[in-house]
């Protein structure tokens, strides 16, 4: 019985799961940031941001 296969499998599954989760969250962040940038470019501002400026 080769135990190394199981150990490798466990580490591979965990790495895949965690990296997948991290990438998903990173992509989510990037998308939201891009959306905010786009909206700010059209000139939409949040109330708090406008107050800080004026």
């Amino acid at each position: 019985m080769n135990h190394a296969v199981f150990v490798t499998a466990a580490y591979a599954v965990s790495a895949a799961g965690l990296i997948g989760l991290a990438i998903w969250i990173l992509v989510d962040q990037r998308m939201r940031q891009r959306e905010i940038a786009e909206l700010e470019q059209i000139g939409v501002q949040r109330r708090s941001a406008r107050k800080a400026k004026g």
């Binding site: 989510d28 962040q29 939201r32 940031q33 959306e35 905010i36 909206l39 700010e40 939409v44 501002q45 949040r46």
Partner: peptide, 9 residues
């Protein structure tokens, strides 16, 4: 950020 986008939209 997602909520901010919604508010700004």
């Amino acid at each position: 950020w997602r909520r901010r986008v919604a508010v700004m939209r």
